[in-house]
Design a protein around this nucleic acid. Sequence first.
RNA 1: GGGUGAUUAGCUCAGUUGGCUAGAGCAUCUCGUUUACACCGAGAGGGUCGGGGGUUCGAGUCCCUCAUCACCCACCA
Length: 851
Amino acid sequence: MKLSKAYEPGQYEETIYALWEKSQAFTPQSGNGKPSFSIVVPPPNANGNLHIGHGLTNAIEDILVRYHRMKGYNALLLPGADHAGFETQVVYEKHLAKEGKSRFDFTREQLYDQIYEFVAQNRDNYEAQFRKLGAGIDWSRFTFTLDQKIVDRAYATFKQMWDDKLIYRGKRLVNFCTFHGTAFADIEVAYQEDAGHLWHISYPLTDGSGEVVVATTRPETMLGDTAVAVHPDDKRYAKYIGKTIHLPLTKREIPIVADAMVEQTFGTGAVKITPAHDPNDYEVAQRHDLPMITVIDHEGKMTDVPEAYRGLSVTDARKQVVADLEAASLLVKTEAVKHSVGHCYKCGTVIEPLLREQWFVNMQPLVKPAIKALEDKQITFYPDNKRTQLISYLQGLRDWNISRQIAWGIPIPAFQNIDNEDDWIFDDRVKEELIVVEGKTYRRDPDVFDTWFSSSSWPYATLDFPEGADFKEFYPLSVMDTGADILYPWVSRMIMFGLYITGEVPFKNVYLHGLVLDQHGAKMSKSKGNVIDPITKVEEFGSDAFRMGVIAGQTAGNNQPYDETKVIGARNFCNKLWNVARFIEDKLGDKAVSTVPQPQTPADHWMLSKLQQSTEVIGLYLESFRLAEAYDTIYHLLWDDFADWYIEASKEAHNPSVLAYSLETILKLAHPFAPFVTETIWQTLAWQPDSLLTTSDWPEPVTANAKQAKDFEAIKTIVTEVRVMARALKTNDLELQHSGEAFLNDHAAQIAKLAKITAVSEAPGGQGVKLIQSTYPCWLNVSTEKAQAYLKELDDQQTQQASIVQQLKKRLGNKSYVDNAPEAIVKQTKEQLAEAERLLQGIQEQKQRFS
RNA sequence: GGGUGAUUAGCUCAGUUGGCUAGAGCAUCUCGUUUACACCGAGAGGGUCGGGGGUUCGAGUCCCUCAUCACCCACCA
């Protein structure tokens, strides 16, 4: 016996992975004439450990790629790691804080180098974790988002957009985190309902003819007001339009303007306009050509305001302004309100809209082809509703701010003339701070790209667009699998960039998986302390068990709680596989076995037909991304069909070729789901020396004799019924008798063995309890007294069966059913009725005999 | 305010174009040391598919409506 008693994953996984790697099993060769199947792994952040979502992503991708590889595709799973600009810098800053330092202690260049070191240290850890997950990835193609080719790609894209006038620099309102000191894209702002106040403030008219009361949640911004707006149709304020107001706490006079943006029913119907600190007000200011006064700086301090407020934080200024207004009797009313406020998604600081010079991408020209591609279903989405959701997202998309004021990222390749601030040029000499072009000196923009800008090119940049062999072979990708949470920030942009740069959609299918929640259905987060580490689970239950456990029951687009009983079930599945192999090893030894099955008995034919059906079904499920159902199919094929029936039947008499063939087929079918245990068995048995299961061919279905296969179904029916009766009769000391049925004589030993009764034999008829389900007349030899225990069961069965018969009769008695339903369905119902009546009759006869 | 998803056995979830006498795993109950496996075997119980209406010969599946939960989006001053 080469296989030990129980499967212990920890003993084999590392060796098996090393074997795959050494054999370059996951390295496809371009141009080998096979159809290609490609997935590029969404690169996890290089700065930390993999979380359970990566475990799920890997499971899905690896199953798909392994299946296609065995199926004969030139299959690629390309790994990578993400520098994750802002996110990583935040992690590093926390790290610095522990040492009592902050980003202000270093220059951006120093910070960049330090973070580079920091990330490099985590790389080994990260790669080891991927190996533990059993990822069948091609390490030779590993790509980091700061690799030169990715940076070059980002620059080429930026340049092309620059030339196409899609890139512009503008002073716009941007979302700014005053803690982290950087701007964000709209999509990065986290909105939440906060409790606040609505302060009603009296603004006196300059001509002394009265006042206008405005309502605001941010009184401190009044210092930057440059107008008050009312709705043009609002009768209450019509007479004031065009007049001016004396802005309290300042010496400024501001106009009253009419703008349709104002909601008459909200607040007082009069709105203070602070163009430099509110997106709506900004637009009003543009329409009315109002000045913009910045009163809050990038650190969240008051600036360009009267002396009393200068340098105060926003919160302090708010208190002071409210107090001063109250003292001046200008505060009319204060009401508590709940309103949506934008926060930094990392530190929670309230996002300040600030006027900043930044680089923007004009999105409209990119959006249009993407919407068309989505509408034309050039990409299949799983689930499809995410496709339509994406269309409506794109329709409302605004220009994208791609400048970030952080150190860790790809420097923006743009330089500004030191003598003319409007003169910007593109140049990729980003290592230089100053360059001279045509006699003019330019200074590099200190900002870096939004990480999503470069990762939008991920599908083709990793494949060496435009000339690389990989690009020609593997683009567009077969599948993009990622979390539904990054549909907007990533998937949408890959589509837009892919179409813009390559002229093609970047992938043919998008599979969006949901989040893995904790046991109770709550989102996992470090702060809640409910994070589950996938590697711990891999070590506890085995890599195979972990992956099957997380994909079991998982469907596209739906979140799912982590359920350890599923992982345990999958661990048991591995052990079952292992023990089935042990049983067969015991029967066959390690002599080379023919892979051509030579079926003899009904059991043999039945097993082959099950293998054939399952092979087809698993293939269909995998090709339609229904992984959980594919797993379910292999699970029951192994457990129910093979172990519980075929192996049990083999204990009476075994067929070496069918046993061997079945095991090999099941190992292959199970391999994408349980790569380690299947390969371990394959290597240990070594029936085909020097071969790898992972690169072997997906099984070709073998046709079985349908009649013989059906005969085994008849045997199963008899066996099951005998087992049920034996339990009702509380004994196994039984003999199954019949009046000379050839079929029963032929399979007497088999039936007796499976049903665990004494014998199956010929006898004169009419004795004991007759089987009801079996179409072959036979009975168990029990005395009338003993059979009484069984009568009670019969009553229940009769009631049940009678109601089925009644239902079916009713259906067939309905003329419109018979007329309208498809013929096949009606035929089926008739057969069901015939069968139900046969069973009912059997029960009734039985009852009569014993009563 | 708009949108999406969910609601099926005690728990976690499947259920492709309507044909279901509604499934799985776990849990529960009964029995079992049978030539691999107790990470096992044999059997059993358990659901009017969130409520209400409709379309249809037929609805868990399609339509309307209500309820509850979750998530996303939006410029609620």
